[in-house]
Design a protein around this nucleic acid. Structure first.
Length: 348
DNA sequence: GTAACATCCCGCCATA
DNA sequence: AATATGGCGGGATGTT
């Protein structure tokens, strides 16, 4: 936690419009707003740059720099973020580009990659011998390309020294949030998280829920599954057992479980549970709905079930969760001891 | 907290 | 031959 400003360089590979880029931008922009509301100076100065080929306008109000002259520009920052998405994997054979990335990363205090942004980072060789992660669907490819890197396919995000790599795009949002917490403290991170309605999760290394996963578009059957996922989100109060869900897609439970894991990246029950906690979280923060009603609406049969789930995954009870978030609106009220870290107890 | 009960989910193998 | 699917068993995990 410090008063000085943080310079952030966001490297976007060909596609600028992807959530990999806009997600972190939103987080840091929200952090700036939160600080300004507190009467402080907006701490984050963000530069968006990259060798992209997409439309050259601005994203989230951040002007895009250095598209054509990317290699020539003198770019450095406190924190550099390599966004993933379309084009990130393809550019690892562009030697001059990778060399440029390497120089930038070497000069930076913190290096962050999101999703497949890990590929260009890995290509620099800087990650060799380090722990890292990337999007689950690209892990096999990553491992064969970069055998010297210690890949953890199950982690949401991995921190190793100055390098922080994250799994999916939503994990990138979570990671940005963690950086904000590191830089500005828990209070601001809380406000940002609340504003963005990002699903809260535990520190890296825990794979049980990584928020709402974006279904890979290029994957077979993804249409059926994304439709199912949408249906699930709208029917959380119903019975969402494997048996019921598999019947909806006219699959055997065994095959459904297998395909669900492949396409969505999580097992059915875990995913459903994550969605339920997510929904409950929103109802608890955004309204005055009694906790028992929240539990029912979100598909937890009883308050007890919901409480167990909250304790297990968020390390707080529903009541604590509600109190904590609503306390933000009360000036001067400070969360009690042991409640300061929304990301869970353990940190590193 | 705990115990009984239910469901999940993943390896293994047969079948399509 | 190679691949996708489905059934089964039972330890792991979750619910009441």
């Amino acid at each position: 936690m410090s008063q000085h400003s943080h310079q952030i360089l966001l490297l976007a590979f060909p596609l600028v419009q992807s959530l990999d880029v806009t997600g972190p931008l939103e987080v840091f922009a929200a952090a700036n707003r939160a600080m300004e509301e507190d009467g402080k100076v907006a701490p984050y100065q963000i530069t968006l740059a990259g060798p992209h080929k997409g439309p050259v306008d601005s994203t989230c109000g951040i002007p895009l720099l250095a598209s054509a002259g990317f290699l020539e520009q003198d770019l450095s920052a406190d924190t550099v973020i390599l966004a993933g998405g379309s084009g990130a994997r393809e550019c690892i054979n562009d030697r001059s580009l990778i060399e440029k990335v390497r120089v930038i990363c070497e000069q930076s205090r913190r290096v962050v990659s999101i999703c497949t942004g890990a590929f260009p980072l890995a290509a620099t060789g800087l990650l060799d011998g380090h722990h890292a992660t990337t999007h689950w669907s690209r892990c096999a490819e990553f491992e064969t390309q970069f055998p010297l890197i210690d890949l953890d396919p199950n982690a949401i995000f991995v921190s190793d020294g100055k390098f922080h790599t994250s799994a999916g795009v939503t994990a990138g949002i979570d990671l940005s949030l963690a950086l904000v917490e590191q830089d500005l403290g828990c209070q601001i991170a809380l406000e940002v998280a609340r504003e963005l309605v990002v699903f809260l999760k535990r520190p890296g290394g825990q794979s049980q829920f990584s928020a709402r996963l974006t279904v890979q578009a290029d994957m077979k059957d993804s249409d059926r599954f994304s439709e199912l996922v949408r249906w699930v989100a709208n029917n959380l109060h119903k019975d969402l057992s494997v048996e019921i869900l598999s019947a909806r897609l006219a699959m055997s439970p065994r095959n459904f479980t297998r395909r669900f894991l492949e396409v969505i990246g999580q097992t059915p029950a875990k995913y459903v549970n994550a969605m339920r906690i997510d929904a409950a979280r929103r109802l608890l923060t955004d309204g005055e709905v009694p906790i028992g009603t929240v539990a029912k609406q979100c598909g937890f049969n009883t308050i007890e079930t919901m409480r167990v789930s909250f304790q297990r995954y968020l390390k707080v009870s529903p009541q604590d969760f509600r109190d904590r978030f609503q306390s933000i609106d009360v000036p001067g009220r400070i969360p009690g001891p042991g409640r300061k870290n929304i990301f869970g107890a353990a940190r590193n």
